[in-house]
Simulated assay, not measured.
Amino acid sequence: MRVLIIGATGTIGSAVKRELETSHEIITAGRNNTNIFVDLSNPESITSMFESAGKIDAVVCTAGNSYFGPFQDLTPEKNEITILSKLKGQINLVLLGINHVNNGGSFTLTTGILMDDPIVGGTSSAMANGAIQGFVKSSAIELPRGVRINNVSPTVLKESIEKYGPYFPGFNPVPASRVALAYRKSVEGNQTGQTYTVY
């Protein structure tokens, strides 16, 4: 399969690329050091990415910026960071990419544990995660041509615990390699409308 990975240079994206590249042709997209540049917050950039990639069998998104900070500091402008990138960016991948995905292909989006297990400062991210999960579940019954859609919801990563550990007290971190298996399940399996939790 031809698999387009958005965010392929990040911690999760790199692990997904390693997991899939031995069996599939990988096209990478992102802001830096990838085959194709894309800015998720810009629909025109997303359209250009798909035109450059050509026909593909699977789209995997491990990218998307979110605002983290105390609720009392959350403003509409700060929340818009999350809305434009993590939320609308991923949804627009599906809306603008559906005609570039082959029959029986798939989309795999990324949510996260905060929609199920909140932390202080994570309201904006939790909002986007929950909305994406709802979009995935609902759109799965309407996508044409046998195209599937799922989302992967990881917890904090072992590779990131030194940086983010103080924000996740008592959480059990998982290695990125384990998270990558959920993306493989989505790409190579037959399920649709699912949330694959890696907690």
Rank of each mutant, 00 (worst) to 15 (best):
P43I: 05
K163I: 11
F68Q: 14
I132W: 00
G69I: 11
F50A: 08
P166L: 08
G121K: 11
T82Y: 01
L74P: 04
V101F: 00
S66Q: 13
E77K: 15
G69Y: 13
T111W: 00
N79I: 06
N129Q: 00
R145T: 04
N151A: 15
F37Y: 15
N92T: 02
G146A: 10
V136C: 07
V156M: 04
V152N: 03
I113F: 03
V174A: 01
F50W: 09
T62V: 06
S124I: 04
L93E: 12
K163D: 08
G64T: 07
S160Q: 15
A53L: 05
S160L: 13
I141L: 12
F68A: 13
R31D: 03
S52A: 15
V38M: 02
L74D: 05
P43K: 10
A58S: 15
K86R: 13
K78A: 01
N151E: 14
P166F: 08
E142T: 11
L143W: 04
T28N: 08
V152P: 03
I141V: 13
L96E: 15
E44S: 12
G97Q: 09
A53T: 07
I83E: 05
S66N: 15
V147W: 09
N92K: 10
T123F: 07
A131I: 10
Q133C: 04
N129K: 02
K86H: 09
N79K: 03
G134A: 15
P70T: 07
G121T: 14
P43A: 11
G146R: 10
A63T: 02
N65R: 15
M127D: 02
D39A: 12
N33F: 10
G112K: 08
G170I: 00
S153M: 00
M49S: 03
R148Q: 11
F37G: 12
P169A: 01
G122M: 04
I81N: 11
A126S: 15
T82H: 04
E80A: 08
A126Q: 12
I81F: 06
I132D: 00
I81H: 09
E44I: 06
N103K: 07
S139V: 14
E80Y: 06
I119H: 11
H100F: 12
S85L: 11
M115T: 06
T155N: 03
R31A: 05
H100Q: 03
G30K: 02
E77F: 03
M115Q: 10
T75L: 05
I98C: 02
I141E: 14
I132Q: 02
S153E: 01
A58R: 12
A131Q: 06
G89T: 06
E142W: 08
I98L: 14
A126P: 13
K86F: 01
S139L: 15
T82C: 08
V156F: 00
N103V: 04
I56T: 07
I36T: 09
I149C: 10
A140I: 00
Y167I: 07
N79A: 13
K88I: 09
K158D: 10
P144Y: 07
A131P: 03
N99Q: 15
T110E: 06
F68T: 14
T75A: 06
G30M: 03
P43T: 08
L157W: 05
G170A: 00
I91R: 04
L84G: 03
M127I: 10
A53G: 02
R145L: 11
L84W: 00
G64L: 06
A128G: 05
V147S: 10
P166N: 03
S139K: 13
P144N: 12
L87D: 01
T75R: 08
Y164E: 14
